[in-house]
């Protein structure tokens, strides 16, 4: 196992930037920083497939591209399947000698939460079941941001989106978010983890573990969207730290079935600390919605306790 991974920025600072500047993602978007961290954590050649979404449209505007690695986008729901086709081609061409036997290539599929939790759910599940050697990364900004902030299966309860708007009778999204990371882990694949970019060491360690795994791996990474979350562009890392400190977004991994919580806040902050700094939850602080805040806190507590129990169970 890869239990001794050390991330030292001085070791990687001279690496080539494989996601070049000049991409058109919004200032302060969490996605490009996460992609840079991922690419700096990957050693050697990598081929990337990306689902339709902000990352895709902003990094490749014909006739330009920000990618300095082989990259493909084919549709919204199928980045896992597209890369599984690339990986299969790699195996076939290696077998027929068209790719040298000693040439190692890594395979990465990327999708937003809409592409992962919703429209591409089956495609990811199929790719994991088939056991391709690939890493699937969900860049999770908790709504369909590219189309203008519509609710997805990842959108948390209470969030104000353009298809779960706050109205006179409905207080934003009324459903809980889908437990995507747990469902991915339920595929019994070698490695599944949740990460966030404020903790780059943890994130990059998980990338290395994911690529070192003996089969498919999934990373669910929280990616703040200043536009959709109604936050300032410089707060991106502050926000994901709050998400981890409130246990809204636990940093954990399921490594060959064994759950490890990688970060346990010394003092667990109330979830309101996370909610109140974001415009998408502002309405929840009206007195009328106090019970929703309580429900959310109770749910977070319950999920955190369950996670700790899973870890204790080993």
């Amino acid at each position: 196992m890869t239990d001794r991974i050390r991330i030292n920025l001085k070791d990687i600072v001279n690496n080539e930037e494989r996601l070049a500047p000049g991409h058109r993602l919004c200032g302060g978007c969490g996605e490009p920083t996460i992609m840079r961290m991922i690419l700096h954590a990957i050693e050697g050649p990598v081929v990337i497939s990306t689902a339709t979404g902000c990352l895709e449209v902003s990094t490749t505007v014909y006739p330009t591209t920000a990618w300095q690695v082989p990259w493909i986008h084919s549709a919204f729901e199928n980045s896992a399947t597209t890369i599984s086709g690339v990986e299969a081609a790699y195996k076939a061409l290696k077998r027929s000698g068209k790719i040298p036997a000693d040439k190692e290539i890594k395979f990465l599929a990327v999708g937003g939460d809409g592409a992962s939790y919703d429209i591409g759910f089956q495609w990811i599940s199929g790719a994991l079941e088939r056991g391709h050697k690939l890493v699937y990364v969900c860049l999770n900004n908790e709504a369909y941001m590219n189309t203008g902030i519509q609710r997805s299966g990842a959108t948390p309860k209470g969030a104000n989106t353009t298809t779960s708007p706050v109205g006179d009778v409905i207080p934003g999204k009324t459903q809980w978010r889908k437990p995507f990371t747990r469902i991915m882990a339920a595929h019994d694949i070698p490695y599944v983890a949740q990460a966030a970019p404020h903790n780059y060491r943890d994130l990059m360690t998980k990338v290395k573990k994911a690529f070192a795994a003996d089969g498919p791996a999934v990373l669910n990474i929280l990616a703040p969207c200043p536009r959709g979350w109604r936050t300032e562009s410089d707060q991106t890392m502050v926000l994901t730290k709050l998400a981890a400190d409130t246990c809204y977004w636990p940093l954990y991994e399921v490594d060959h079935g064994k759950t490890v919580v990688n970060y346990k806040p010394r003092e667990k902050k109330p979830v309101a600390d996370w909610l109140k700094v974001q415009g998408r939850f502002r309405h929840l602080f009206r007195p009328a919605y106090a019970s929703i805040l309580e429900e959310i806190q109770a749910r977070i507590d319950q999920e955190w306790e369950r996670l700790l129990k899973e870890e204790a169970a080993g």
Binding site: G22, H23, V61, P63, T65
Partner: peptide
């Protein structure tokens, strides 16, 4: 004269776009 299939052959040419 456009590239077949919309392929882009210049990795990192996004640098020419001034953000």
């Amino acid at each position: 004269e456009v590239n077949p299939g919309g392929i882009v052959l210049d990795p990192g040419i996004s640098v020419t776009y001034i953000t």
